[in-house]
Design a protein around this nucleic acid. Structure first.
Length: 537
RNA sequence: GGGCCGGUAGCUCAACGGCAGAGCAACUGACUCUUAAUCAGUUGGUUGGGGGUUCGAAUCCCCCCCGGCUCACCA
């Protein structure tokens, strides 16, 4: 963990780490990288003994601008209104649309072990008058703000433009209003029908005092105001904001020149790409957060996000690949290294930190967790497909001791993840499918010895009593193979080819025991082919 | 058009001025109650291209090519 520990080592004095988000809709997996980075920075600081406060803001006074997320009859009325004032579309007891969606990501964060010291709501900050001093400064210095937009972002606002928007007293919209005058106490605004394309203002105009939540700073100024209000010293942001002339540059300039304060240390971070493309559920390319969460438990998801340096784009392509099993394997390897077990291959720099920061609980007993037994994900996925396997017993045998409560919980978590993986992302080669319709073409390559043995097995299995259990089948496989002088490896390969169309597979005895005896016998005979001259003689 | 990131073995990546490496995959071998397991081994490279700096460059500088994201209206 070079990057977070290095960052923590580079700052002096108490730190306030902050981020904020507009609660406009669902959270996709890629958008969780920021919160994980935020949390890891805070943990790295605390690990060095640096007094650290972790804050997370909810920009719930931002206007509603995504009509796809509204019920059809609500679009006309709600678009452009502050999210905090839009009713909860889900109707599940949240006070507002903003509360509903904010709760979703607060829960998601908590599930990832991210627990800010405080969540603050901008609607409450405005209502409490905390932003009022900055509103006054911004209005007094509107001309300087316009100059910053011109210089930094090359955006030329009209000479009467002011960096603030009013909640229209008539229609309640905030996204449609423009302020053109400031007399030192009140502002003059218009709610324009054609100000933005996504919402229609009501045409109201008038003078209003911009304090106490009746108006809201423009986004770049609000960002800078948050830094001043909370004394923020470190704030990561995604590369969409960190671009030259982008929001972060503007907010930095505003902090410097308007609010006269040093902006926080920036930690720009790249996004998560799926197969080289940005995650986007609307384009059908990405994978929704809850879909990934079914397959990748929180600690592995943290690892995925925190292992690379923030500025490096993460290529994660779980669909039809072994990316997810590999992620588990990497986690287990780090655990092994942390526990002092021998590990193959190279370890990343600061691997102890990587593992520690991957854990959900910052106060966890790292040594105990690292030492715990974990089934390899790929192995578990295989076991789940073999009929009649007692997973717990099998894993206990592998461990050589009873599983602890922690280990059992891990097994449960991974079992669920493996099932979900097999159901969704797993490549075909990881799936076991009994080819019931016909003898697989791949079985054409069986040699005479294998065919003869398959016939022998069919004959033996047809005797009474037929094998009923995996053990019985297993014994029969070995005894008949020995009788005809066929190497067990050849025998098993023949069975797999005949039933699965591949040269390997899961425990054959148990596989056969799980199928109907009549089908098994028929397939064995077909695979054996017509009797040879010797046999019929 | 501006910005950022990346291009290293089939795949995913490490090394960040000092002998180009690992995992997985592939291949070979071992293991006579399992075989997608385990163990041992092998193969695999003009580090996207071209210049430059240096005793020495995957690494630093310049130019180009390719891929991607992002911004350029608002938040």
């Amino acid at each position: 963990m070079d990057w977070a520990d290095e960052l923590a080592a580079s700052v002096v004095g108490p730190q306030v780490v902050n981020d904020s988000k507009t609660p406009s809709g669902t959270v996709h997996v890629g958008s969780l990288r920021g919160p994980v980075i935020l949390d890891v920075i805070a943990r790295a600081l605390r690990a060095r003994g640096t007094a650290t406060t972790l804050l997370y803001g909810i920009d719930d006074l931002d206007p509603m601008d995504a009509q796809a997320l509204l019920t059809p009859d609500a679009v006309e009325h709600e678009m452009g209104r502050p999210l905090a004032h839009v009713p909860d579309q889900a109707g599940d007891c949240h006070a507002s649309y903003a509360r509903h969606h904010a709760q979703t990501f607060i829960d998601t964060f908590a599930g990832l072990g991210i627990r800010p010291d405080r969540y603050y709501w901008m609607s409450e900050l405005y209502a409490a008058g905390e932003v009022d001093p900055y509103i006054r400064i911004a209005l007094d210095r509107a001309e300087a703000v316009r100059a910053i937009y011109q210089r930094v972002a090359k955006v030329q606002h009209p000479s009467d433009w002011h960096p603030i928007q009013v909640v229209c007293e008539s229609c309640g919209r905030i996204g449609t209003t423009i302020v053109t005058r400031w007399d030192g106490q009140r502002i003059y605004y218009e709610c324009r029908p054609d100000f933005v394309s996504w919402a229609r203002g009501c045409g109201h105009a008038g003078w209003v005092e911009p304090f106490g939540g009746r108006a809201k700073l423009g986004w770049n100024l609000e960002w800078a105001a948050q830094w001043s209000i909370f004394g923020v010293t470190i704030e990561p942001c995604g590369k969409d904001l960190a671009t030259a002339g982008g929001s972060r540059d503007r907010a930095d300039a505003i902090a410097h020149e308007i609010f006269e304060r040093e902006p926080p240390l920036n930690v720009p971070y790249e996004f998560l790409n799926i197969g080289g493309r940005k995650m986007s559920t609307s384009k059908g390319l990405g994978v929704a957060a809850h879909e990934i969460a079914r397959v990748v438990p929180p600690e592995q998801l943290r690892l995925l996000f925190l292992r690379p340096r923030p500025q490096t784009a993460i290529e994660f392509d779980p669909i039809g690949s072994d990316a997810i099993p590999r992620l588990f394997d990497e986690f287990d390897r780090l655990a092994d290294a942390t526990a002092g077990r021998p590990v193959r291959g190279e370890l990343p720099a600061g691997h102890e930190s990587v593992f520690r920061y991957s854990l959900l609980d910052p106060a966890a007993d790292v040594a105990a967790i690292a030492a715990a037994f974990r089934p390899a994900f790929g192995h578990l996925a295989l076991l789940r497909q073999i009929p009649g396997v007692d997973i717990d017993a099998r894993l206990e045998a592998e461990k050589g001791a009873p599983l602890t409560a922690l280990e059992l919980a891990t097994v449960r978590e991974r079992t669920a993840a493996a099932d979900a993986w097999l159901e969704t992302f797993a490549p075909d080669r990881s799936r076991i499918v009994v080819r019931r319709d016909a003898l697989p073409d791949e079985a054409a390559g069986l040699d005479a010895g294998q065919r003869a043995w398959l016939g022998r097995l069919a004959t033996a299995a047809a005797a009474t009593p037929p094998p009923a259990s995996g053990d019985a089948w297993q014994a029969l496989i070995f005894s008949t193979a020995t009788e005809v002088g066929l190497a067990p490896g050849q025998a098993f390969a023949a069975l797999y080819l005949a039933f699965l169309g591949r040269p390997n597979g899961p425990r054959a005895g148990w596989l056969l025991a799980s199928l109907e005896p009549a089908f098994v016998l028929e397939r064995l005979r077909i695979a054996a082919g017509p009797p040879t001259l010797e046999e019929s003689a």
